[in-house]
Design a binder for these strands. Structure first.
Lengths: 135, 135
DNA sequence: TACATAAAGAATAATCTTTATCTATTAAGT
DNA sequence: ACTTAATAGATAAAGATTATTCTTTATGTA
């Protein structure tokens, strides 16, 4: 398991074993919901409190270590903060994938038309993944 | 006030005064959260139950009369179902605007690259609206 | 227009979900 | 090793959503 002590400290968070394991779980699983993170954590820390999960998710959100991805017709999932990207959601199997789409030109155009200063996008594309539509 | 009896019936919903008022509130306000819908409704129906709001929102969602817009760092809002469009969110004043962006070419491209069959997009662009950045 | 009936509304209880509180423990700097 | 502020766990509290029960009502039919 990678040591995320520095990562946590850089985000003004004490490096507790629980937090290191949370970051590791996000790294390994990519996109994780609150309750799924709780069950993952229970395997390593049999007496971890659900409140600890919530508290740390909120702290990590505030310190921009993780990001919340809001999905249509599903609960939010959390991911480690990366450079801006979009998400693919399979409506059948629930799988979530990152996808890099260059939205710069598009956003510039919309910015001009709407007179909005846009500095962030949340883009989720839903459908069926390769496995779920090829049979 | 427009009579939404037919609209409701077309979506397999009985046209009760409460439901007509909900549809009207969404039409007039564009994007409404649960609690804000509740306060709007309380003005017309002083004894309406919050459970009625939730029940009807869910029924209208199931019957595709309304759509849930999930926003970053904010509670969901609901809108009357329209043709596919994106949303602009002002991070300062909280204002939400619809914006028509033709994503077809983009989505086709991504579909080919990722081998996902994409049939829906949820696109929220966040920033500052005209009023909030021009002063 | 009145009737029958399934559905909806209001009130409220019950069930999540999330946050707050309190105490014992621990990370991290000295 | 020692000190201190922050964290974890346990649990209560608060907030959000759903379920239940009973009364009322929309709507199709006679």
């Amino acid at each position: 398991m990678i040591n995320y002590t520095d990562t946590l400290r850089k985000h003004n968070l004490k490096a507790t074993p629980q937090r290191i394991a949370i970051v590791d779980a996000l790294f390994l699983n990519g996109h994780v919901s609150t309750e799924s993170l709780y069950s993952i954590m229970l395997e390593k820390f049999s007496s971890i409190s659900l409140a600890t999960i919530y508290k740390n998710i909120n702290l990590m959100l505030e310190n921009c270590l993780i990001y919340e991805v809001k999905l249509p017709h599903a609960k939010s999932v959390y991911e480690l903060t990366k450079s801006s990207h979009s998400h693919l959601l399979c409506k059948k199997c629930g799988n979530i994938e990152d996808v890099d789409i260059n939205l710069e030109t598009l956003v510039d155009k919309i910015s001009k038309i709407t007179e909005f200063q846009i500095d962030k996008t949340d883009f989720v594309l839903s459908g069926n993944c390769k496995n779920c539509h090829s049979f």
